[in-house]
Design a protein around this nucleic acid. Structure first.
Lengths: 206, 206
DNA sequence: ACCCTGATGTCAGTTCGTGACATCACCTTA
DNA sequence: TAAGGTGATGTCACGAACTGACATCAGGGT
């Protein structure tokens, strides 16, 4: 027989989510979480770097999925299409655990510190994407920009999906959001050219 | 005669930047900062919410500039052009204090906690921009997306500017980055349509 | 002269997060 | 099967981040 119950990490994640949900992130101490999970506070910190990290699973395969999908996309595909595919392949990770994800988002939405951490995670994904695009031969700055724009679109799509009363799929929201992005940028050339208040002299496309 | 030296806040900002720079953010305690500024630790917390916030000035006029510029832009201008103008008007805030800004970026670059906080500030700007675009009558999701893309572009442009050995202007970097963004997104329609590995059946524009 | 206000100081306390060392079921290996 | 190594956990001590409550006192108004 084991000296301890197995899966301390899983128990900690569950306990934390429950407590954060029930009494709020601030009002929950790490000691409480640990006790509820049947371990000591010190053990919590052996599994998670800090009180926030417990909401952001470490076994998250997202980065790998994004990187692999980007690497696997056909060569002639333009950057934004590569990203579209990467995000589309990553979407199931969320859709398969929709309930859990929405519960977690509710906690995050209620706390600025957690929102900060989430932004950091998204920035890390952008970094991963940028790296993958560079591997495809894309120039460094173009890669970084494409990745940032892709993640920006994902943020909007994800937020729509989480709060969508009609429960449309995340993939659909991603597709629609990226289409919106295309419409946003496309008309810029000729409209800018007719702008009488030009102040840089170069609003048009180079 | 005053009971205390004036501008405790300014002294705290200066002391913090110097110490963070010299010995690192982690190795600096709030007590040290306070002592160097000639006040007590408690006073530090009366001026700044936490140890990180001291690097992100509260009198930052950026949000107002972005909002005002967005509101003032001519009505027929498409969203991304509005954002281009807003960012262009905000640029001098950085350019006028280039040395200070670069010094602060060096500190931030060396510490993940500070990077998190910076991302949060940028997200707040995106929020401000989105609100301003909605005020212009833009549909909510389009506004949010345009704002996120604008801030994404700003992030890339700002990073280029901070590290630019040629010291080109931030405005120029912003313009170039947004042009890159246009090229990135524009060609998507017809290329996607020729993609033989279509897997959603809807990669083209709706 | 009196009182009010606002910025600061003082102090006690909670919680976060970390280093150092102890324990002990389980596994390996001879 | 006995010896020893390993890894996950517990125990303890502590510094540093924040917070609430109350005290102080120059300056400004009445």
């Amino acid at each position: 027989m084991s000296r301890w119950e197995p899966d301390a990490r899983g128990r900690l994640e569950k306990a934390a989510l429950e407590l954060y949900n029930h009494q709020g992130f601030d009002a929950t101490t790490v000691a409480e979480i640990a006790t509820r999970a049947g371990v000591t506070e010190r053990t919590f910190y052996r599994h998670f770097a800090d009180k926030r990290e417990v909401l952001f699973p470490g076994d998250n395969p997202l980065a790998d999925i994004l990187a692999d999908a980007s690497a696997a996309a056909p060569v002639p595909l333009p950057p934004l299409e590569v990203i579209t595919r990467a995000l589309t392949e990553a979407a199931p990770v969320f859709e398969e655990r929709a309930d859990l994800v929405r519960q977690r988002q509710a906690v995050i939405a209620a706390n600025p510190e957690l929102q900060e951490r989430e932004l950091a995670k998204l920035a890390a994904f952008a970094s991963t994407l940028a790296h993958a695009l560079r591997e495809r031969g894309l120039e460094s700055i173009t890669a970084a920009l494409a990745a940032e724009i892709g993640i920006a679109a994902f943020k909007v799509a994800f937020e729509r999906w989480v709060n969508d009363p009609d429960r449309h799929s995340l993939v659909q929201h991603i597709r629609e959001t990226l289409d919106t992005a295309r419409h946003l940028i496309a008309p810029a050339e000729h409209v800018a050219a007719t702008d009488g208040l030009s102040f840089t002299g170069q609003e048009g496309v180079a």
